[in-house]
Write a protein that binds this DNA or RNA. Structure first.
Lengths: 250, 250
DNA sequence: TACGCCCCTCGTACAGTGTTCGGCGAGCGC
DNA sequence: GCGCTCGCCGAACACTGTACGAGGGGCGTA
């Protein structure tokens, strides 16, 4: 006797309708998990809640997914799938291609801010989408004239910058969403605390007061782009001083 | 009647000895939490286990710490306290100072690899140690000739690079520790999977085979230093250009 | 058409989690 | 000596991830 449906007799019992939907599968589980995370954040992801949203029992996912950790790996790779991979002829303007890829990674993370801590937990993975992204970048850079080792470094450094920079943006977004307030309200509310906390730190205080109005999204994207250009500058100089073939930069 | 100590009579009951230790305090709680995390990893941190290690009840910490999340914030700032802050006369050789600071941040994170995901959850905080670090960097850079906005960018970019780069190293370390195997064993064991997964990704495959022996710590620190020099190169060029391009992003 | 098998589903159960509450008992100020 | 405050802790609550085993629908084969 379950508590959520009282069975009066055999005749009123709903004959479990199978196959009206493709039922459960790895894909729909992961997709629904992403939706749940987008709507309610990382803390709200539990197997029971996810099962309920799928009209499934709490433990029904375990025949498609070994554990919650594995589910998270799949979710992360699913999000990797939203990032823009450099196309086959992107090497003609590798600067633009790398920049577009970096911006795509950033905006994907900001669209799913809960993923930032997960990236730190999962680390580098063998997921197909994550591999496709790295492979695309490596291929493009090698075609643009970098050798294997250089391209490896470039990808590492570029992604380290993008992920590091975006993670702090995402943490800010997450905190704002959790507080349920607008950015202005929140800033106004914690301002006294900031003022008191920065008493002994004049440079920090000046920095905070300089951006008192809060960080608008234009300022944030400018910050990001500024550092990105910088990193890409370094990239170009390495290319120029390295092998000198195919170094036209559009 | 509790289950972990049978009270025979009033006389044998241990008179709770107070004040032999400074009892519980925020500091000893946080310090013990760091020790627990170092020894057993992030998944092992629970209020009950922490209480047991402190010879305290499960909920005794709640008069010193509001919640587990707050405890984590304190733990993170405690670890920030281990990072090397540029000294007052570091501006004379800001390159060396920034490099030393970056290396210190990296090695601190690698000493406590569990902290990498936490950095993504906590985000920028008002903790005293975190502020001391940022303040020290800002002060040094301004004294070295950067203006406020430039120094802000530099700190952001540098830390984004260091944290992003180190996070993936830390994830690797964490995974290795969780598997309980040596790096060679692990590499040998997953090698067939890698070989099969990289079937369609020739560049990735070449990268993996190139570093087949596994990544030694020398290679890793070289990778890190390579990118760090690169970032600092960009930093220097910005400084040399001075105010000519200074107001570009304003 | 009937049987048998397989695999998906899910109720139940277990060990553990963070956190609240209320009581208790010790220390300190008066 | 008295009372009050404050730190400590046992019990309890609402959850969590996951193992297990029973049930039953779908499909291949007879």
């Amino acid at each position: 006797m379950s508590e959520n449906q009282v069975i009066q007799s055999v005749w009123t019992r709903p004959r479990r309708q199978k196959r009206e939907q493709p039922a459960l599968s790895r894909e729909v589980i992961v997709a629904e998990a992403v939706r749940l995370l987008d709507e309610e954040g990382a803390a709200a992801l539990s197997m029971r809640r996810l099962g309920t949203r799928l009209n499934a029992g709490a433990t029904s996912m375990y025949s498609h997914v070994a554990s919650k950790d594995e589910l998270i790996e799949l979710v992360v790779d699913h999000v990797y799938g939203e990032m823009e991979v450099p196309g086959p002829d992107a090497a003609k303007d590798w600067w633009a291609a790398a920049s577009a890829c970096a911006h795509s990674v950033r905006s994907t993370i900001l669209r799913h801010p809960w993923i930032a801590p997960m990236l730190g937990e999962v680390g580098v993975s063998l997921g197909p989408n994550s591999m496709r992204l790295t492979e695309g970048m490596l291929a493009m850079l090698e075609e643009a004239g970098f050798d294997l080792e250089q391209a490896d470094h470039v990808v590492r450094i570029l992604f380290a910058y993008v992920i590091g920079m975006t993670t702090s943006e995402a943490a800010w977004l997450t905190m704002l969403a959790r507080s349920g307030q607008s950015q202005e309200d929140w800033t106004r509310k914690v301002w006294p605390a900031v003022e008191q906390a920065t008493r002994d730190y004049p440079h920090l205080r000046r920095r905070y007061t300089a951006q008192e109005g809060g960080r608008s999204s234009e300022v944030l994207v400018d910050n990001f782009g500024y550092g990105l250009d910088w990193v890409l500058d370094g990239l170009r100089s390495r290319l120029d001083q390295g092998s000198r073939k195919g170094a036209e930069t559009g």
